[in-house]
């Protein structure tokens, strides 16, 4: 608040880098309850629509020689399938639909967030924390169900000297519980940072002399954000696979 006030007083510069993340009800009112239809709802719905368009409508012809949309859908399928198989192993393929869901949602939420004036659902900790906690809980439950108490061997580094093992165990336990934190903050932080930086550059465009640089900078940041959108979805998915591998084969 203070920044905005000062900026407005000094040079007519107005920075509202975080305003784009405000959750607003779509149909009037200011009260955001549990079930209110907000811009979050709208953009999540659009993400669902995009997923359905690509993965269901795009493949509806079941062509042997695929159309463009079908190729993209098959590419996404093959990409995630191979990732799960390579990173987490063959027995992790039972979780393939779940990981695919995460990937498709994140990638489309990220890309839809790049549309000007849109709302980036994945830039909110509320969203990413839930995504990361879902992964964390799934991985922990799967680890204990598949391996029983042997899953605790993940924290007991058998290859280290005996004296070091308790220390390492404490570190391993801490790092295990930090996983959902970094997992969620990485995704939301990356997107929030990129979008906020674009907004800051956009604020500078109000000064006529700086505006060309500002526009170029916005363009460059936008290109970087396209890359980041995909890479963050990829990283979230591949880390999920890595965690899943730990749960399925804790000895490694």
């Amino acid at each position: 608040m203070a920044v905005e006030a000062q900026g407005a007083e000094e040079g007519g510069l107005v920075f509202h880098p975080m305003d784009q993340f405000i959750v607003k009800p779509l149909f009037g009112g200011s009260e955001v309850g549990m079930f209110t239809i907000t811009n979050v709802t709208l953009w999540m719905f659009l993400a669902v629509l995009a997923v359905v368009a690509l993965m269901v409508l795009g493949t509806s012809r079941r062509a042997i020689i695929p159309s463009r949309t079908q190729s993209v859908g098959e590419l996404a399928y093959g990409f995630v399938y191979k990732m799960v198989e390579d990173v987490a192993g063959k027995d992790a393929l039972a979780f393939f639909p779940y990981i695919m869901t995460l990937f498709m949602f994140i990638v489309f939420a990220n890309f839809l967030g790049l549309i000007p004036m849109s709302f980036t659902t994945t830039s909110h900790f509320a969203v990413t924390v839930v995504l990361a906690l879902l992964v964390f809980v799934t991985v922990t439950v799967v680890g204990f169900v598949k391996n029983g108490s042997k899953f605790l061997g993940l924290f007991w580094v058998a290859s280290a000297p005996l004296a070091l093992r308790p220390v390492l165990a404490v570190i391993e336990v801490i790092s295990y519980f930090v996983r959902p934190v970094s997992h969620s903050i990485r995704l939301a932080g990356n997107l929030m940072a990129g979008h906020a930086v674009i907004k800051v550059f956009a604020g500078f465009a109000a000064i006529a002399v700086v505006s060309p640089i500002s526009v170029v900078a916005i363009t460059a940041m936008y290109g970087l954000e396209i890359l980041v959108s995909f890479i963050q979805a990829y990283v979230f998915t591949i880390l999920t696979c890595v965690y899943l591998k730990d749960a399925l084969h804790p000895s490694h």
């Binding site: 970094s182 903050i185 990485r186 932080g189 990356n190 940072a193 890479i231 963050q232 990829y234 990283v235 591949i238 880390l239 890595v242």
Partner: peptide
């Protein structure tokens, strides 16, 4: 990419 993500996460 995992390495980049870990390094970048700390910056984030």
């Amino acid at each position: 990419f995992i390495g980049i993500a870990f390094a970048e996460a700390l910056g984030i």
